[in-house]
Computed example of a mutant assay.
Amino acid sequence: MISLESVTKIYHQSLLSLIFEAQSVHRQHHQTDTVQMCTLSNIKSGRCPEDCKYCPQSARYPTGVESYPLLPLEEVINQAQEAKQHGATRFCMGAAWRNAPDGEEFDRVLQMVEAVAGMGMEACVTMGMLRPDQAQRLAQAGLTAYNHNLDTSESFYPEIITTRTYRDRLETIQHVSAAGIQVCCGGIVGMGETDSDRIELLHTLANLTPQPESVPINALSPVKGTPFGDLAPIDPLVLVRMVATARILMPKAVVRLSAGRDRLSVSDQALCFLAGANSIFSSEKLLTTANPDWQDDAEMFNQLGIAAKELSR
């Protein structure tokens, strides 16, 4: 058990010492100068009954986001093939559901997972709360990871979402883990939370058993129409601090620099990589919000001397 006091101490040390410690840990467990490229596809958009205040896909907010049902299998396969050609080794599929559905739609998601895994790529899905039997079926289809973020601290959570509890989230994570699927679980900064909330989130993540294999660190992308549409962008150094603390606490995890990257300079991102981030999402959109495109990322990798992680043979 990692104590809240020790997480607080790590998080609050001087930024330069924190980055140095994180980079030292990173070098012990990961290839340096190598970053995994992932692509996130919005396989079913909008009309979600949840009230997450940051999310443009909630049916409760007038955001103008395009709504569409689950995409045809062929279209998702084409997207995955294009992502692979651009150097992505992980293909993530997001569907705006409160709970994973049953029947034909779930069967189609299983086919998508099988197709992506069949290309030799890592397959990841996020589609709300899961039952144990659904997690087992996803595992059998070859799913690498299931994404289910905690978003923020347990204390701040009711300020963000009222339509489900923190306990609901933790239960889904347990079902995923029990099925032998990797857990992809992180959070979002810039939603009005305090440093204490960020520390509490990292403390919860670090004490999951087993620790998550994948930890996305997102910066809020404010979308007009949502309750958080007018929030000011977070200071990029908060992201660096989050990445570095996550790296020290979860040395073996892949720390993913996720949403909000379109507002970060190359220098900001370089600091995040130095602090232990070793994955990005590369594609023109992240579900519904802007993201740097393939060309931007190729130029940044070239500038920083970073290699894209290759598919495992």
Rank of each mutant, 00 (worst) to 15 (best):
T204K: 08
I188D: 09
G192W: 15
L202C: 14
D197P: 02
E213M: 12
T204Y: 07
E200H: 04
P212Q: 07
I188F: 07
G186E: 05
G192K: 07
P212G: 02
T194A: 09
Q211P: 14
Q211W: 03
D197W: 10
N218P: 03
T204N: 02
G187M: 01
I217G: 00
G186L: 09
P212V: 12
T194E: 11
H203R: 08
I217A: 01
S214G: 03
V215W: 01
T209R: 15
M191A: 14
G187T: 03
T204E: 10
D195C: 09
S196N: 12
V189I: 15
G187V: 05
E193F: 00
I199E: 05
G187E: 02
L208N: 04
P216F: 03
L202R: 12
S214H: 06
T194S: 15
T204L: 04
E213A: 15
G186I: 08
G190Y: 01
N218T: 13
C185P: 02
L202S: 13
D197H: 15
E200W: 00
E213G: 14
R198P: 14
E213S: 15
N218R: 11
L208C: 12
T209Q: 15
N218I: 08
L201N: 11
P216N: 02
D195P: 03
A206F: 13
L201V: 07
G192E: 11
D195W: 06
G187D: 06
G186S: 04
T204G: 01
N207R: 03
P216L: 04
E193P: 09
T194G: 04
